[in-house]
Computed example of a mutant assay.
Amino acid sequence: MSGKTTSARPEPRLYLATPVVTDAAALAASLPAILASADVAAVLVRLQDSDPRSMITTVKALVPAIQGAGAALLIDGHPDIVARAGADGAHLSGIAALEDALPGLKPDRIAGGGGLSTRHDSMRAGELGADYVLFGERDAQGRRPSPDAVNERLAWWAELFEPPCVGYAISLKEAADFVAAGADFVLVDDLVWNDPRGPAAALAEIGATIRQAHAAAPAAVAGQG
């Protein structure tokens, strides 16, 4: 991987993670309006652990709504069902999971990397061929790095490495700050689904926040290199 040389950084895009899917039909029915409210690059589908056939059926129910909106569908884990479910890729947590999954996913499908607690792990994910690296997500105990730590990691990555970086935001302020730090994508979940106005309104507001933060970013961030 080499230093970034692009003259202007594109406007960061949204990466929407679903709650654990318990009613695929209801979610599929609601997604077109939600995804139409903002520029969503991808949707991360979180599945209930079950038998492969049931999980594949769940994903297949969501494929038309997500891919029909122009977004990629990634599965949280379970790389073994990606092809059979018609998904675009998988998000893997930890270097071992990424290493195991890459041969079956690349080059045709997306392999994203998360659970990268150290700079070394982040660089290793990039060297292995991860299509993006995610910073700021919760661990198995529900803990996550401080926003300052996520900002620092995003800025470091954005300055030096080619694969896109994703910042996981739990507030509008974090979304704006992560864009300013250099995030290529902003991952959101509860910030959308728990909003009393509804997910479409929440996502639209987050999208507007991202646009404003990108427009206000200093030249050194808006154009790396």
Rank of each mutant, 00 (worst) to 15 (best):
P12A: 02
G89F: 00
A217H: 09
A181Y: 03
A71S: 08
G207V: 00
F185N: 07
V20G: 10
P64H: 03
P64Q: 07
R153F: 10
S50L: 08
V186F: 03
S122P: 09
D100F: 14
K60G: 06
L154V: 02
A26C: 01
G86H: 02
A180Q: 13
Y15Q: 06
V20F: 09
L203S: 03
S122R: 08
G68Y: 04
R211A: 14
G225M: 05
S30P: 06
R143H: 14
L116W: 08
F185M: 13
A158F: 10
G68P: 01
D80G: 11
A181M: 00
P196K: 05
D76R: 05
A175F: 09
L187A: 08
D23A: 11
A24M: 04
P218V: 12
I210C: 04
A219F: 15
L16S: 04
A61M: 06
Q212F: 13
A158D: 14
F178D: 03
G142R: 00
S54N: 14
P10A: 02
D39I: 02
G142S: 06
G126H: 07
P64L: 04
D76Q: 11
E162Y: 13
H78L: 11
P147G: 00
I110A: 01
D39N: 10
D100T: 15
E99Y: 04
E11F: 08
T209M: 06
E127H: 15
D148L: 13
